[in-house]
Design a protein around this nucleic acid. Structure first.
Lengths: 215, 215
DNA sequence: ATTATATCGATATTTCGATATCGATATAAT
DNA sequence: ATTATATCGATATCGAAATATCGATATAAT
């Protein structure tokens, strides 16, 4: 059936659970489980049944009483919803330690993102390549990003230059930024900034250890 | 039902904002700003004033009307609170692409975490080193982790083996796990699992692009 | 000294996500 | 065919986090 409300809003939290469902569903498929219910996912991932059911309702309408969802159907509904099928191009800025490992990571494409070019301020780095991606000097960014109509930018530069790079990206027509620098980025409201801050995660970890273990 | 920790007076969300405050405060310090108010932080990070004030109240009591907080005092209060001062040892499992770049990342120590050893299932990898850290075979994990009294484990293995590694870590007395595998880990309730799932972040990004741009 | 004001810190309100409840229904069992 | 039940999906409730409001107070300006 058609999803009637195509502008249906799903919460960021729910969105972030979907990849976990996907992973679970794929393991179900590997086990030849042709049907999977919301309750099974909830149990496997130790989540609340209703929460899973609500999340799935936003993505698929193929659920049937007693049997649940067709495993493969649900997989493809989620992938469709997340846009894994039509790949978005991305550019990466900052080919240092982190940048290079992102460039050589092979898992992005199956999540619908393809890094098409990388840029670095360092003239010695520009001209080389990493993970099969060419690295260009920063001066080429605006022109290339515009011509390739790239919509996603990945910031892997040091904290000090992150805002500058952000401005450059916004100026080049980027719609979403994946920010690996540990700073808040100031950008227009319609630009999505997704922060991947290791320090923030670490804060949760070490606080827990402090509390459990005293210091 | 929910195990409320009475000593935990701060939410996970607030905890994750602290590193951003820290970064902002350090840039203030670099600008010779000896005092910083909650309102300044809120404006700089585009957050709600009250939210920042509440977060700060949980970590410091040095705020004064009209002047705000002493920049350096607040920095050290936050660092103290997050445990950046007394370093926790960690071990990393899985010296593949991702694992190796985590091993060579230099920023963890200033956040109070030090990777003391790495492990890998592959006999060819064990015996080598990465980022100045020795890599041991998996068999040595339990013994080493126990003797070194390590409390943090970092999982950087493929999805398939993540649960197995998790069990091993829990058995070795680990208190908190930083999980880079895109799977839900089943562990006792008092073990903290902090998931770092790139696919989840990507989901948010690409959904945004889909919505803004159509296909 | 008096006044104005920026900021803190406490309390109230709102918002939003998580959870509980319950009726509807497709399937399996009898 | 009838009945039992697992599951869906909708609605209601709950709770935590975000935000608004406001009084108290330290500092600066007059």
């Amino acid at each position: 059936m058609e999803n009637i409300n195509k502008f249906q809003t799903i919460s960021k939290q729910a969105l972030q659970r979907l990849p976990y469902y996907l992973n679970f569903l794929k393991s179900q498929k590997a086990k030849k489980q042709s049907n999977t219910s919301a309750s099974m996912i909830a149990e496997g991932l130790r989540l609340n049944q209703v929460q899973v059911r609500k999340d799935l309702a936003a993505v698929s309408s193929g659920g049937r009483p007693k049997t649940g969802y067709g495993t493969e159907d649900l997989i493809s509904d989620i992938e469709q919803f997340l846009g894994y099928n039509n790949t978005h191009d991305a550019i990466l800025i900052g080919a240092g330690n982190l940048g290079r490992s992102l460039l050589s990571y092979k898992g992005f494409e199956e999540c619908g993102m393809k890094i098409v070019a990388a840029f670095d301020i360092d003239k010695h780095v520009a001209g080389t390549e990493a993970g099969g991606h060419p690295i260009f000097p920063m001066e080429k960014l605006e022109d290339l990003a515009g011509r390739l109509k790239v919509k996603i930018g990945i910031i892997a530069v040091p904290a000090e230059s992150a805002q500058e790079v952000c401005d450059l990206l916004v100026g080049s027509g980027i719609l979403a930024i994946w920010n690996f620098a540990p700073v808040y980025l100031d950008a227009p409201e319609d630009i999505l900034i997704q922060n991947e801050n290791m320090a923030a995660s670490l804060a949760v970890l070490s606080k827990h250890v402090e509390e459990k273990f005293g210091r």
